[in-house]
Design a protein around this nucleic acid. Structure first.
Lengths: 229, 229
DNA sequence: CGCGAGCTTGACGTTGTTCAACTAGAGTGG
DNA sequence: CCACTCTAGTTGAACAACGTCAAGCTCGCG
């Protein structure tokens, strides 16, 4: 199970909370006192759809997937270190609408939800930044829903590859860090079709592919595929 | 085109802004001074996907649809009077990710975006409520995306009917106030299939149907259809 | 009366899922 | 070191789901 510890200092922490600089010293101390650091191993569940949120989660180190569970899972997004994992559930309805699991060894800071909310109420600049973040996360889902509901397989897989390139790895070449099944869940299709279309892209020299290592060779074609859907 | 006017008083307005009571008098005056009331006729576009948001929009009277445009439209939700139309675009990225159009004659209050933001920063209780609203709107889209991406036609149409019943009209019998095409866009399917499944539901005595007037006869079956997808 | 928009239904083709069989590689225990 | 097993990946073929096309229908309105 996950390893638990306490932070020595939040201010000097290399994985410092985003927007922490907007808070006053006493508030930072208050975060520090109630903060718990938890380490998750690859595959472990960080929060579970249907349960209630009691803590704010900050992803200090690692990478997680946020997904909706069901007969088939749907991965909504990946979250990299330096981001809050869930703010929506903190401020809105308290029940998690999704699950979050570690895609690699991951370090999460947790602080009591009420403490963070009180603190946000007293520091409207901080709250304002959190609100911005929540808003943009909503905007992202709007884009995702329109992509998923309207594009066909090729367009959706192109979307996923461009997402990995532009938002997650910032490089034309990367180890995608997930199985074909997960790539399929990110693209809302069956695993078999994800495999098939990856092979197709490889055959057409749009990407090169060895195991989980992907290199994007013709990004303009991917963009076109994403555009035409 | 839309008719424009100024409010006489925001405090005594029967369509008073939500959470206005959390603001101080001087702030309410400031809203009142910069507020413009616009009346839209059925079918008119209130905001257009791709343009930039300059105003906060509050739906004082009427009903609007919020939808993503493309080769086929996708209606994400309907908004009733007494709700803010878009807060996400106000606090996050300024470009509208969707369009909004009036489904009936509608009255909208607009105030300058910067004024509302300044005001929210100075009244963290107000900002807090807005943040809650934005969060829940995000949570709604999470549900919507999982419904759309996983359920089949019958499940999705059942979802739409339950949505209209539970969230919009609060009654087993209602005039759905939209065309078959729009119902299809709400359910992410072709218009022909929406028609077909409506007829099927009628034949199976799950609903009664005369024109746009729908009466839900067996809600438990609808729920079941929604559950099994 | 004629026209157009919305609605309805059937037939057909396309898209995508499911099932099944097979391969390659990693890990395990004798 | 080899057989065994387990998981991830791959490919083909059958089938189901869904969209598109086409034809006709109804109703309100000029």
């Amino acid at each position: 199970m996950a390893k638990v510890s306490k932070p020595e200092s939040c201010l000097s922490c290399p994985y410092k909370w985003k927007y922490l600089n907007l808070l006053e010293d006493k508030d930072i101390n208050s975060i520090q006192r109630s903060c718990t650091i938890i380490n998750f191993k690859k595959g472990e569940t960080i929060c579970k759809q249907g349960t209630d949120a009691t803590h704010a989660l900050y992803l200090a180190k690692g990478m997680v997937k946020l997904y909706i569970e069901g007969k088939k899972n749907l991965i909504l997004k990946l979250i990299k270190s330096g981001e809050y994992i869930d703010l929506q559930t903190l401020f809105g309805d308290k029940t998690y609408k999704y699950s979050v699991a570690a895609m690699e060894d991951t370090m999460v800071c947790m602080i009591n939800s009420e403490i963070l909310q009180d603190l946000a109420k007293q520091n409207s600049d901080y709250l304002f930044e959190l609100t911005k973040t929540i808003s943009d996360s909503g905007n992202y889902v709007y884009k995702k829903i329109s992509d998923i509901s309207r594009k066909q397989l090729r367009g959706r897989l192109a979307d996923s590859l461009l997402y990995l390139r532009n938002e997650i790895f910032n490089s034309d070449e990367f180890d995608m860090g997930m199985t074909r099944k997960e790539l399929a869940e990110l693209s809302s299709m069956s695993m078999e079709n994800a495999v098939r279309i990856l092979s197709e892209f490889k055959k057409d020299k749009i990407i090169s592919l060895e195991g989980k290592r992907i290199k994007i060779l013709q990004i303009d074609i991917l963009k076109k595929l994403s555009d035409i859907g």
